[in-house]
Design a protein around this nucleic acid. Structure first.
Lengths: 226, 226
DNA sequence: TACGGTGGAAATACAGTGTATCGACATGAG
DNA sequence: CTCATGTCGATACACTGTATTTCCACCGTA
């Protein structure tokens, strides 16, 4: 093995920082879902060994936390609407759009406390929008209720999206029967109310359905703030 | 190696069925969370080889689906209350209690469509409780909105529970500052509304908070059904 | 009774995972 | 020029889900 056979050693290890790591992880997750994110693959994208990452994070879950916080940066609205209702509405819709852009977010949302800088900033601006409209406890209850709603709704929407995609069924077919198994079950007659809902229900646009439910919840909140 | 050294072969492989498999998996998950559920460990509990399970399920996710459906059997109320509002309330609370009994449920809830027999039965009885109170689309929107709420709320509650447990902080300490990091962040003064909420908010019981938010959402639904 | 065939269980194998440990090496200090 | 230091990557380990192969008890037939 002469010099000529041996490649030059790499100049220096590529400089790394959390931002680059998280960006690589997010890209991986956007392409192949959360399961496509492995420390080895993230590191490989950055031309580094896997162990290198442990200087910046100490566990894979922490990487997920950073990824979520990175998305919260997208969610944080540029300037806060003055109206509390509009503020909550915008938050919900922005979160939903981010989750549709990064479907893996649905798997993580609410799964760990969001204590990163952007997560805190989102909480702060949300609470600020409601500040003074009622006692603190009512305000918190309001924010938590609305968050619970849109967290749950987003999760379900993304889940349905994936299931639909997995069957390869057309949108309307899916909506009609959610695949052959459910069709069979409904045919047994043991689920009349469900069957009625599935067959007689008109197809509603996911965004519209999300928005409608949201307005209902906002109405409820409004009633309590007044 | 004479006969005397060789142990008798086991009588016959233990008979297996999905019920026993799922029970073992649930037990494992109850003890150590979802990550403690591996096909090898489940099989070991049943004195079987890991591959044996693939006769009953074809993927680990399917095992999770079965586990969730097993819990839906707990959730399904014995007899349905006549009042639609009570029906939804009971569903929400029973789901919550099941999730507190099996915390791993919070990780799975809403993560995959619940198409198992018990899941369908829960949907059926829920829809039946609202049947005729409004047009189908409104009814579905109502159910989905309430489900989205309690799904999200349960997920957050369990997440908080775990975080609290992980820090080893006392309940009140946790409530006050959610650990040293948040305390530090709040001290920077960059999150005044959040700080106010954390420090001035009175401690509210998780169940009460869940129930209150739920009633708000039910109010909203009631307004639309009328 | 002997013999294949067959079906299902188990062993083995494989490609991957997160993470601990350790050796080597480039860099900065004396 | 030498030595300590700290960081990076290779190696290692225990484990994962799952595909493939091997094996063996059973059964119907000759």
């Amino acid at each position: 093995m002469t010099v000529w056979d041996r490649p030059e050693p790499p100049n220096r290890p590529v400089p790394l920082d959390r931002e680059r790591i998280v960006a690589a992880a997010v890209a991986l997750a956007d392409e192949g879902g959360l399961t496509a994110v492995s420390l080895r693959k993230v590191a490989a994208r950055l031309d580094a060994g896997p162990m290198r990452l442990y200087g910046y994070i100490s566990t894979k879950d922490e990487l997920f936390d950073l990824m979520v916080d990175a998305v919260y940066a997208e969610i944080l609205p540029g300037e806060q609407p003055a109206d509390w209702r509009e503020a909550l509405r915008v938050l919900a819709h922005r979160t939903r759009r981010s989750a549709l852009r990064h479907e893996w977010l649905a798997d993580l949302l609410g799964g760990r406390p969001a204590l990163g800088p952007n997560g805190l900033a989102v909480s702060e601006s949300t609470l600020a929008a409601l500040d003074g409209l009622a006692d603190i406890d009512t305000v918190m209850r309001a924010v938590e209720t609305v968050s619970a709603y849109f967290t749950g709704a987003i999760r379900r929407e993304v889940t349905d999206l994936r299931a639909e995609r997995a069957t390869g069924l057309s949108k309307s077919e899916w909506q009609r029967a959610r695949g052959p198994h459910v069709t069979r079950m409904l045919a047994t007659g043991r689920f009349p109310a469900l069957a009625k809902a599935v067959y007689d229900g008109t197809h509603v646009d996911a965004e519209e359905s999300f928005a409608t439910g949201l307005e209902w919840v906002l109405d409820a909140v409004a009633a309590r703030l007044a």
